[in-house]
């Protein structure tokens, strides 16, 4: 061992374990990024920045390890076997310590890794919010999706607050203990669940979209929901809700559908992907409205009735049949009214 460890000699022969350490360190560094970036068509710089950041750090680690080992090589050549052994043990200790430290650092640096996705200006967020309501009819070329998480996250939190607001206005009969949890669970569950489901479908249908883009797309799609729910929780008018549901919710859904269509090839795949997304998105708005709005009406009904004790209802317990059944009749009514009004005005 001592003879082969000439200064400047090949380092890997001297100590093969160190190569292992080096690989370990690299593995630790590369395990940090979770957001993949297989898409070149997005044109957004955030993904590139994340990748660049990670690559830079790996290079730094490499350079450090190389420098340390060069020093070791010189040292080992001059000293005796005993010194080399102690040095080697010390080095292994040092490497292990360094590995642990780098792991701890990479845990903390997860925040830094996420930071590029939050790198936005207020003007950008504003324009993206507006754009989420404007469908673009461009099918031949894949449309851009900004891979950013600030807007979606804030919209989800806003939706949580609006849901809480809606639940609170529907009096206190709902169990409050589940109220906050229900709101957060519903919103985050929808956002993350539907995003991953559509991402899975997109993978099956060979659509060109990443998980990050899916999260951003669906997150900004919730802007329409926020507007509609905020208005209709305060103004209890069914015709108004259906109008908003079709107009605002429809616009934001159309926007998402247009983006997905432009990134998918083949009519069957397009139909499957977009049909699922559109149905889920529109039905979610209906669910949110009726699950927490019908409660008010139910309470009003029971209060008006003679001495019937108000039923204790958890918002989730409301059967889906009720809104659906009422929907068909009221929707027909409202559309008939709208048609009548338009006829009268002409």
């Amino acid at each position: 061992m001592a003879a082969s460890a000439a200064p400047g000699g090949p380092r890997n022969e001297t100590n093969p374990e160190w190569g292992g350490f080096e690989e370990n360190i690299q593995g630790g560094g590369s395990a940090v990024i979770d957001m993949e970036n297989m898409d070149d068509t997005s044109g957004s710089s955030f993904e590139d920045m994340g990748e660049l950041h990670q690559r830079l750090r790996e290079e730094e680690v490499d350079a450090d390890a190389a420098a340390a080992e060069e020093e070791d090589g010189e040292f080992l050549g001059m000293k005796g076997f005993k010194g080399q052994l102690s040095r080697q043990v010390a080095d292994q200790m040092w490497q292990a310590g360094k590995r642990q430290a780098s792991r701890a650092f990479s845990l903390y640096a997860n925040i830094d890794i996420l930071r590029p996705y939050f790198d936005v200006e207020p003007a950008q967020v504003r324009s993206r919010l507006l754009e989420s309501m404007i469908p673009i009819k461009m099918v031949n070329f894949p449309q851009k999706i900004a891979g950013e998480l600030y807007g979606p996250l804030m919209l989800v939190f806003t939706l949580v607050a609006i849901l809480l607001h809606g639940m609170k206005t529907s009096d206190t009969i709902i169990r409050e203990g589940t109220l906050m949890g229900t709101a957060i669970g519903t919103c985050f569950g929808y956002w993350l669940g539907v995003s991953s489901f559509i991402y899975f479908l997109a993978y099956l249908c060979n659509a060109q979209i990443t998980m990050l883009q899916m999260l951003a797309l669906l997150g900004y799609g919730l802007f329409g929901h926020c507007i509609v729910l905020f208005i209709t929780y305060n103004i209890h008018l069914h015709a108004l809700f259906y109008l908003f549901w079709l107009l605002v919710g429809g616009l934001s859904t159309l926007r998402m559908v247009a983006v997905l269509v432009s990134r998918t090839v083949g009519p069957t795949q397009r139909l499957l992907l977009c049909g699922t997304l559109a149905a889920l998105h529109m039905l979610f708005l209906l669910y949110l409205h009726f699950a927490y709005h019908k409660v008010v009406e139910g309470i009003l009904d029971t209060l008006e009735g003679p001495n019937i004790p108000p039923m204790q209802r958890v918002p989730r317990d409301i059967p889906a049949v009720l809104p659906a059944a009422r929907l068909s009749t009221t929707m027909l009514n409202s559309t008939a009214k709208v048609v009548a009004v338009t006829l009268q005005s002409h």
Binding site: F118, Y150, T172, E176, G177, M180
Partner: peptide
């Protein structure tokens, strides 16, 4: 079932931590 102690407590701290994380992420 008014707002329970735990609910308010958790809401306050969860909200504060979320805002802090957000401000850290924004730089």
């Amino acid at each position: 079932g008014g707002p329970q102690f735990a609910e308010v407590f958790v809401t306050l701290w969860f909200g504060a931590v979320t805002i802090t994380l957000n401000s850290k992420l924004l730089g």
